[in-house]
Design a protein around this nucleic acid. Structure first.
Length: 400
RNA sequence: GCCCGGAUGGUGUAGCGGUAACAUAGGGGACUGUGGAUCCCCUGUCUCGGGUUCGAAUCCCGAUCCGGGCCCCA
């Protein structure tokens, strides 16, 4: 037997119903903020992803050569492709540009809970403005989406890489290794590496920007962002220890966690970044975020969220010799826009009812010769068990 | 890349060295004018490969996949 590749998933009809629902819901909110959907290819030149992150990234990327020897990769994320698209096509468009996207990404990782080799990301990029209100609106939208879909328990943390780097400079501790340790929250190791650990500890535990003694211009901007967040009524936490893995992040960064998920609790991450110049475009401010679609769904499920059930089709059963008449009914009702399933197994009425029952179907139309003569069919309510004879025409008005 | 724990009909499980069991589901029939019942029939050989043994689902090794945890995380 051939099974699915490691770290990939098949989705059942029940799962797809949930996923579709969530996708639709998220899309609505992006649209509400004036973002427009775009889509980019599943495969890109490998270079697009190695540019900013170095060759080491290849190990986690599904990379391959095509028949002409081009080095390609399945996209491991969507920010770089979207920026590539922007540089190729949209540089002269009026700013700001607001794009959102939904797509599958691939990473060659050890699969575990909330982590797959093929996973889906919902995200957006805001191109052209880094005004405090622009960043505040972006963060608000991320928070709004997660709240709107029904998540109860989420935590938003906001940090600032410029401030963090400047501070580390001031204590002579700004290097990649230390950033990595901060990202990992490995305080034991940091204690060994940073001479002035006490000051560092004080810095990263700051909960209010007024506690900052330093005088960087970035602090003023961040204060403004926070002011606007309050205006948008978004609860936040200051967390100057957010380091984020990618080097192209600059300035304000944020993460949203669903604490219930444990180790893989981060469901959204984003911030300001600089990628356009690397891709050969004219420098312009960019910011964005990505939501882990699978993890978000998982978080909803773990909170016991009640998903709306998709309505069941009306089912058409027929007596012996009434197949063509059943087809007529199916055709008529589908033309009315109704969801219709007809017996395709040539089952007896009793088997048909049994089937409808197991499938949770609410209404069954029974096409029988005696009634057909009078221009009528039988309609049976599977919940109450009641059955009545009705005109074929009035079937169109049946509620499922 | 590392560490645990798993893998038995479609699904959920039992069996843990003597030649596969139970529940449930699916299809058909008893039953061509009516559902959740009953009865009968059909559908499954233990993830794969190698080893130990007279004999392996059972023990050992390896691979694959799944779950959990690290590392990493765009």
């Amino acid at each position: 037997m051939i099974s699915k590749p490691r770290g990939t998933r098949d989705f059942t009809p029940q799962e797809m119903q949930k996923r579709r629902w969530l996708e639709t819901k998220m899309r609505e909110i992006f649209e509400k903020y004036g973002y427009e959907e775009i889509s980019t290819p599943t495969i890109e030149h490998l270079e697009l992803f190695t540019l900013k992150s170095g060759e080491g990234i290849i190990e986690e990327t599904y990379a391959f050569e095509d028949k002409a020897g081009r080095k390609l990769a399945l996209r491991p994320e969507l920010t770089a492709p979207v920026m590539r698209f922007y540089v190729e096509k949209f540089q002269m468009e009026p700013k700001p540009l607001k794009f959102y996207y939904f797509g599958n990404c691939f990473r060659y990782d050890r699969p575990q809970k909330g982590r797959y080799r093929e996973f889906w990301q919902f995200g957006c990029e805001l191109i052209g403005s880094n005004k405090p209100e622009a960043i505040a609106e972006l963060i608000t939208m991320a928070y709004d989406i997660l709240k709107e879909i029904g998540l109860k328990n989420i935590v938003l943390r906001i940090g600032n890489l410029d401030i963090l780097r400047k501070f580390l400079d001031s204590i002579g501790a700004n290097d990649a290794e230390i950033m990595r340790l901060i990202d990992k929250k490995d305080f034991d190791e940091l204690k060994k590496k940073i001479r002035n650990f006490e000051e560092f500890e004080k810095f990263i535990n700051i909960k209010d920007l007024d506690e900052l003694k330093q005088d960087y211009k970035e602090i003023d901007k961040m204060k403004e962002v926070i002011e606007f967040l309050e205006e948008f009524s978004v609860p936040y936490n200051i967390d100057l220890s957010i380091a984020r893995g990618l080097e192209y992040y600059i300035g304000i960064v944020f993460e949203i966690d669903a604490p219930k998920l444990g180790a893989e609790k981060q469901i959204c991450g984003g911030g300001e970044y600089s990628l356009v110049p690397l891709l050969g475009g004219k420098s312009t401010p960019t910011a964005g975020f990505a939501i882990g679609f699978d993890r978000t769904l998982l978080a909803l499920e773990m909170e016991g969220f009640k998903f709306v059930e998709v309505e069941k089709p009306i089912y058409i059963a027929y007596m012996h010799g009434m197949l063509k008449e059943a087809i007529k009914i199916a055709k008529m009702l589908r033309k009315e826009g109704m969801k219709v399933e007809m017996d395709l197994m040539r089952r007896s009425i009793s088997k048909s009812l049994d089937y409808a029952n197991r499938k949770g179907i609410k209404k069954v139309v029974i096409v029988a010769p005696e009634e057909w003569e009078k221009g009528k069919v039988l309609i049976k309510d599977m919940v109450s068990g009641k059955q009545e004879e009705i005109d074929i025409e009035s079937l169109k008005n049946q509620k499922m």
